[in-house]
Design a protein around this nucleic acid. Structure first.
Lengths: 241, 241
DNA sequence: CGAATCTTTGATAAGGATCAACGCGCGTGG
DNA sequence: CCACGCGCGTTGATCCTTATCAAAGATTCG
């Protein structure tokens, strides 16, 4: 499939054994707009994409590689991130079922994508896409939708990174993530503290301390490291105005 | 044109008199991809968009307003930003000639857009667009291009906000902005220190101090507040690895 | 020239990073 | 089955970067 060479080398301080893989959280409702790229689901239709399973903490593609395909998440969670040469990492987004990632204007990927936990994605080759696009104008509209939504999310993320305190960042993160939890008050986190820290522009220690702080203040209960119970959803939301 | 009501109210601490408007920096090369939405330039062609002049520090649209149009910068500089209820502001991007902004998936704008200095933009009504799209499939490809480029920029910005120090942020900003300066070593800044601070997730004081620091270290010379001369471009770039 | 705004600089405070150590959970192997 | 080791997470002590508070230059414009 992809051309994955000696790419795992980057994952120095973030490597880890495969995650145990908890019960997967459900898809965020994409409403009706989700249909087109979903055609690959329908058996009988000429497969527009290739299904691919990725184990946890494995790279899907690396920055600089030939961007010959983009992807749609079927299940699991994917993180899209940048590495600085000194090991610092910034996670731009976590993608869950229904999300599209890997859209590029240029020849090469400008970021890396990795599975947070065991995940399934569908890859769509850009070359195939050109053919499809001719016949199906809805497709480019679909892609535009995904690109614009990604843009809106990235912009919201910028505010978080640039103008929020640690407490606000973590509170916002929990609330966002809670939206993907079937049981509205029990939030299962798919990612490690390091992932959360790199997403929020904090250190792992600050994230941990902030969770403890929010627990002391009775906003949440940290049942296990990966499971949070919301005790005061409104209060949590109020932390971000 | 737009429906600008009592929207200027937001601009409490960032308001200011019109800027003097220096010689405009040139457009970033968009290569060939720039053609389609540029059709409005061609006289004789049914106008696809409406030209609009905006004076400095005036709002083009506000967060929450009906997103009935998107825009392309002809000249000047536009900032796209978010306000928090307590006055904190985050600038997501500065747009210059050739850039498209205001693309939205939803009904309302999720951000505000304001002219940094006297600027000219073309607005394209989304309703008109639908008609165009039918006849011209290149258009949706164009829009996709702009959306994806915006996404890539937003992602690069996230790294800056989340994982860079003040010095790295300012150095990166100067280098980025230098790309838009005709004379490669004299950089004319269209925006205030407050704008830069809000773009980089810093305070105005830190930005100012960092400029001074970079000058002391002989990377730049701060000729006037709005004009920087690059003394050591490579060194400046090395600050970001 | 003087008012208003913007920018710079200084002194101090605070939020988060860093350094360090310990605990917990889990899988492995004796 | 228990002990051990290892990754991960939590907590503590301290440091450092950047924010905040304050005031003095610059710059612009009426």
């Amino acid at each position: 499939m992809g051309k994955s060479k000696a790419m795992m080398a980057l994952l120095t301080k973030h490597r880890s054994a495969e995650l145990p893989e908890k019960p997967r959280r459900t898809a965020p409702n994409l409403a009706k707009n989700n249909s087109l790229i979903g055609i690959a689901y329908r058996p009988g239709l000429r497969a527009a994409g290739t299904v691919r399973n990725i184990t946890g903490n494995r790279q899907i593609y690396g920055e600089g590689e030939d961007a010959d395909a983009f992807f749609k998440v079927v299940s699991g969670v994917v993180r899209v991130c940048t590495f600085l040469s000194d090991g610092r990492r910034q996670i731009d987004a976590f993608h869950v079922s229904g999300d599209v990632f890997g859209l590029e204007t240029g020849k090469a990927y400008s970021l890396s994508a990795e599975a947070v936990c065991a995940s399934t994605v569908i890859s769509y080759r850009r070359s195939d896409l050109a053919r499809f696009e001719e016949s199906n104008k809805a497709l480019s509209r679909q892609l535009l939708f995904y690109a614009m939504r990604g843009l809106a999310r990235a912009q919201a993320h910028s505010v978080l990174l640039g103008r929020r305190t640690a407490i606000e960042k973590v509170a916002a993160f929990i609330i966002d993530w809670a939206a993907y939890s079937p049981n509205s008050n029990v939030v299962t986190l798919a990612m490690s503290r390091q992932d959360i820290a790199d997403y929020l522009g904090l250190t792992i220690e600050t994230v941990s301390r902030t969770f403890s702080h929010l627990e002391r203040e009775a906003f949440i209960e940290v049942t296990t490291a990966r499971q949070i119970t919301l005790k005061d959803r409104r209060g949590l939301r109020d932390l971000n105005n």
